[in-house]
């Protein structure tokens, strides 16, 4: 494990035999391994004191979308932030150190799991109030366009955030001003424990409602990483051409509880059979199945990746636990800019 400075994404993996399709599997495996390791540590060690929303089971959305982005494109997310952070190239050790509240964290221990950032990687920030990063993504994309840049902003949120007024305000503004922003809705069917059918009207979909504003909007199998990438490429290309904003509804499912490391089939809001049904549609397994004929070695690769990334995750945990706490003397740092304080 080489040391990587905080805020700098790790160098691209050059030893992999994988092509672009297998690389998507590799990136999903990496996120899965990291999150499973973090779940275990979170539950067993009680050392990460930060509400943590895992993406286990829905890795294809982050990986497929981020594979369609370039280094200058900016990604914003809501609370379920780890997977997009890692998929965009965010520094793993800085993320884990952040969860452990260390000064070496990507937000110096001030932000925690829900306030990740890695500016160098183009992961421009995550925040936890539902929907609030949606207009921020619009503003970032608008800024790029106004300044004549070709970069695109992407903003991730869940199905629940589409119930917020600011979602509709942002869609409206983006369409009026032809903003190069991709709205990425990860529809995992639940807002905490409230099912979508109790929260949104039957007879129309989120995609339908967005399309009514005139946006290019696509409803995509969010557990098919190749389909996600294809849709995201089309969305990003439209933005880069100045054709206006794009919307992606990616249908997926979180396997674990809304917040925290546990399974929740005994919480009473969804059936174990439903969870098992979605586990059978695991995005990693599906992506692997899809290319096995063309890449017969893919199962070996997956095993190697699992070994490598579990070790990388453990090393990141070791790094984080050994890292220094922030100094209490610096409690106020960053409340204001130093000039004028």
């Amino acid at each position: 494990m080489t040391t990587t400075p905080v805020g700098v994404a790790p160098a691209p993996d050059t030893v992999d035999p994988a092509g672009p399709d297998a690389a998507l599997i590799r990136d999903m495996v990496r996120i899965r391994c990291v999150e499973e390791e973090l779940c275990d540590r979170y539950r067993d060690d009680q050392e990460m004191r930060t509400p943590t929303h895992f993406s286990i089971g829905q890795e294809a959305t982050a990986v497929g979308v981020c594979a369609a982005t370039g280094p200058d494109d900016l990604v914003f997310t809501g609370h379920r932030s780890h997977a997009p952070y890692l998929a965009k190239g965010g520094d793993l050790r800085a993320m884990v150190a952040e969860l452990y509240g260390r000064e070496a964290g990507c937000a110096r221990g001030r932000g925690g799991s829900i306030h990740l950032i890695d500016r160098a990687a183009g992961f421009a920030g995550s925040a936890a109030i539902l929907g609030e990063m949606i207009p921020v993504g619009v503003g970032a994309g608008w800024s790029a366009a106004l300044r004549g840049r070709s970069s695109v902003a992407l903003t991730f949120f869940g199905d629940g955030a589409t119930e917020e007024g600011v979602f509709h305000e942002s869609i409206n503004f983006a369409q009026v001003h032809r903003v190069p922003v991709v709205f990425v809705c990860e529809n995992n069917l639940y807002s905490i424990s409230s099912p979508l059918r109790q929260r949104q009207p039957a007879g129309s979909t989120i995609t339908d409602r967005v399309a009514a504003y005139g946006l290019w909007a696509r409803s995509v199998d969010g557990n098919d990483v190749y389909a996600v990438r294809a849709a995201a490429r089309a969305a990003v290309a439209r933005c880069r051409e100045g054709a206006g904003p794009a919307f992606l509804e990616l249908h997926t499912y979180r396997w674990r509880e809304h917040v925290g490391p546990g399974w929740d089939h005994d919480h009473g809001y969804r059936a174990k059979e439903e969870i098992d049904d979605w586990i059978a549609r695991c995005p990693i397994r599906r992506a692997t199945d899809a290319i096995r004929d063309a890449e017969p070695r893919v199962d070996d690769w997956v095993r190697q990746w699992e070994q490598r990334y579990r070790e990388e995750a453990r090393a990141a945990v070791r790094f984080a636990r050994a890292a220094a706490w922030p100094s209490v003397a610096n409690l106020l740092d960053g409340a204001y800019e130093t000039v004028g304080r």
Partner: peptide
């Protein structure tokens, strides 16, 4: 547009991006 919430957020995103 008459979207005070979104416009404030858009301003923040614009400020975060130059």
């Amino acid at each position: 547009p008459n979207s005070e919430n979104a416009c404030a957020g858009i301003a923040i995103g614009a400020a975060a991006n130059g």
